[in-house]
């Protein structure tokens, strides 16, 4: 077996070390810059967007709801449910409180949860 030189080994491990360090740095940096919103329909994740990267507002269409996606915020624009609680909740831009349309089983939330793992209260 050909002997691998120590120098080569050092280079390999040093570069592995660098890659993992860079990866860790990236993981730490990414969530700070990104504001990830998720739209769930009937428990399925149907849309993910980084709200900080949204330049032009747009509507994400669902069979019974229309979600308004804007720079830094997201809201339920229209819904055909009877109470419209989801529309009345207005725009969210963070925090632990999702927008929920119970009758149509739609949920919009911003990941990260405002520094908490869960919210007691509703």
């Amino acid at each position: 077996m050909k002997k691998v030189s120590s120098r080569r080994l050092i280079i390999i491990f040093a570069s592995l070390l660098l890659v993992s360090l860079a990866w860790m740095a990236l993981q730490r940096l990414l969530p700070r810059n990104a504001l990830i919103a998720e739209v769930y329909s009937d428990g399925r994740l149907v849309h993910t967007v980084d709200l900080n990267k949204v330049r032009e507002p747009y509507i994400f269409e669902l069979p019974h709801n229309r979600v308004l996606v804007e720079h830094g915020q997201i809201s339920m624009h229209e819904a055909d449910c009877p109470d419209h609680l989801c529309v009345k909740q207005g725009k969210i831009s963070g925090g632990a409180y999702p927008i929920v349309c119970l009758p149509n089983r739609v949920m919009i939330r911003i990941t990260g949860g405002g520094g908490v793992d869960a919210v007691a209260g509703r």
């Binding site: 793992d117 869960a118 919210v119 209260g121 509703r122």
Partner: peptide
């Protein structure tokens, strides 16, 4: 776990945060 307690006056805000483990927190 950090469990937020919803603010009754402003349901999109939190009154405070409870740090806890192995328990139920019901409001």
């Amino acid at each position: 776990w950090r469990v937020g307690i919803q603010d009754p006056k402003n349901p999109s805000g939190l009154v405070g945060i409870l740090e806890t483990a192995d328990t139920a927190v019901v409001t």
